[in-house]
Every structure is written in C-alpha cells, then in structure tokens.
Design a protein around this nucleic acid. Structure first.
Lengths: 169, 169
DNA sequence: TTGGAATGTCAACAAGGCTGACATAAACTG
DNA sequence: CAGTTTATGTCAGCCTTGTTGACATTCCAA
C-alpha cells in the first residue's frame, strides 16, 4: 500500500523529507487523522446532547482532580465564559462537582462525580481503542516518531502544559 | 498486501507502548499539537473575517483544481449547506470561481482565482513553516513514524481521500 | 480600610456545524 | 416523451462553542 515515501533519506544528509509536497502530505494527514481521532467520542457525546468541549473539560478534570477553573482555562485555551457554560451544564447534570477553595475562597476546585467518571471512562475507552489500534498497526518505533513530531508542533506554552500532564501522578 | 504482518510488533518485543498511560499521552499530544497546527492560519484568517472552514475549502480546491462541489463535500465531511455558505462568501470576495461543467452541466467546477491563490499561498506558507520546523526538529525517521500513526488513525473512507490526494498530480 | 487584582458568573452575539424543505436544471430510464 | 434521479443552491431554524461586556465576590497590599 502506502510505501510511497518510505524511501527514507539516509542518516540526516538528504532533506527530501522537507519538500513542500512532503509537508503538504503531513498537513492533510493531520486533518484527516484528527477527524478520526475525535469521531468515536463525538458519536457518544452527540447522543447525550454534549459536544467536544464537554469531552475536553471532562478529560482534563479527570487528569487533574481538584484543578481550578483558571487552570483549566489556560489548558483548554478558551475564554472563561465559554468554559463556564460547559461546566454549568456538566454540574447541572451531576457529572462535575465544584468546591469552593479552602485557602482562597475565590477559587473553585473541580472534580468528577461517580457519574462523571463513568462517562469519562466510556469516552476515553472509545478514544483509546482507536489510538491503540493505530499504535499497534504502526509499531513502537513509529509511535516514538509520532510523539516527537507532535511535541515539536505544539506552541511552546502548550508544551508546558503537556509536559506537566506527563509527570507521574 | 504482502507486508500485512510487518507492522505487528515482533514477538518478544515489549508492548509497553500500548499501556493506557502511553495512549493517554498520545491523546493529549494530538490535542495540543492540533492547536499549534491550526494556530498560524487561524490568526491570518481572523484578520480577514474568515475562519477555518474557509481555509479548508481553499486548501482542497487548490490541491484539486476543477473539483466539483459534491467531491469537496465528501472530502470535508460537512453538509452542502455548510459548505455553500463558505463558498458563497469566497466567490463573492473573488477568491473562488465556479464554472459550469462541460460534459455534465449540473456540476460546478471550482477554481481559485489569482487572489485566491495568493491567500492560499499565504496560509500554507504559514502552516508549512511550522510543519517544516517540527519535521526538522524531529528528523526523517520520526516523520516516517508520524505519518504511519496518522494514517492508521484515519477512518478508512477518509484514508481513501487521503491516498487519492497523494497521487502524483 | 480601601482600591486594585484575581476569580468566577450571567447575558448577548457570531461562526459554523446541523436538519428539513424546497427549487432548478440536467441527466438518465422505461 | 414522462417520470425519476442527481447535482447544486437557498431559506429557515436549531445547536455547540467560540467571543466580548458587565458584574459580583474575594483577596491582598498600600
């Protein structure tokens, strides 16, 4: 099948992998892959009247329980008003709980409820399953390369968040 | 098809790269990287009153000049109403031109005008620059792996579009 | 103690997805 | 030829999710 470009330049000399055409392929691969990446959770969410924004909030609250609204804001890169709307519905539906900060009462610390964790599991199971299939199909070497490129593609400030999330919890 | 097995991890190889935590990292990397991926064009578009939807249309019309509306629809995966709104503004602004089909007069074939090509260049220059930087930083081996994983992550029907776009033009 | 900064909420608006209904023209089919 | 299907465009209306503006609460430092 797609052995088209697997003729790799040997050990760093050739810069053929930086041609405009190669880059264009990468751009389109990102576009199509991202659609696949979100497709499964999107389907689940749609049936519940939620969207991708709800998924993102749930995902990162799950990864960092007790996080503040402000912190979540900077990770997600949206305005607080936008996030607030999502959080409001999630709290109304009993999936997310917000507790007033003990030391700073202005802050709200966010947690998933039992139901929230259940939905998180359902969503991430679906997404992980596709990831796992892709990883397995591509193999460990490819996965290492995949991550190297993605990390280099992030904005530096987002890289900070990413690194932080990679720390052992 | 001769190399169906070649993507399987060799027996005895560690499967550590398939742990839930590894997958979670990959998921978050996709999220942050995609933001970086779209950030530069988004900035340019915003100043002109356009959005990502316009960029996608311009990108694929540029890649396949003379494509029909229906074809573009299936690549972009949106409804015709949604695409039509975008195309209408692009044509009104003189960036895209639509010509009635010669053999089938129901079809509209889409082309970029001079101005459209100029904008396309501006957008893809910005996006390619980031891609190029990421590619260079990660190296050719990593790029090969990057593509392998992305291709495995696509839906199969989207893979078809992707492969088609990779054919020599 | 008082004013500014930080945090979060509510309201209103815009972009861009979506569905449904309908119109037109051209192509195809019996 | 009549009827159906296909390709496209348009209108109306809804939803999600981004935006800005206004405002309340809380903290902290001068």
């Amino acid at each position: 099948m797609a052995e088209v470009q697997s003729t790799q330049p040997r050990s760093g000399e050739s810069l053929l992998f930086l041609t405009d055409d190669q880059l264009r392929q990468g751009i389109e691969a990102m576009f199509f892959a991202y659609r696949g990446f979100t497709a499964d959770p999107d389907r689940i969410l749609q049936d519940m009247g939620y969207g991708r924004a709800h998924h993102r909030a749930i995902h990162f609250i799950n990864g960092a329980p007790g996080t503040t609204v402000n912190n979540l804001l900077s990770i997600l890169g949206v305005t607080k008003q936008s996030l607030n709307r999502v959080l409001r519905t999630l709290m109304a539906d009993g999936l997310v709980e917000s507790r007033v900060g003990r030391v700073d009462k202005r802050e709200r610390h966010l947690f998933l409820t039992e139901a929230g964790e259940a939905l998180e599991r359902k969503l991430s199971d679906a997404q992980r399953e596709r990831m796992r299939a892709a990883y397995r199909q591509a193999g460990p070497e490819a996965v290492a390369g995949f991550k190297r490129v993605l990390e280099a593609m992030m904005d530096t400030d987002l890289q900070r968040h990413y690194q932080k999330l990679r720390e052992p919890r």
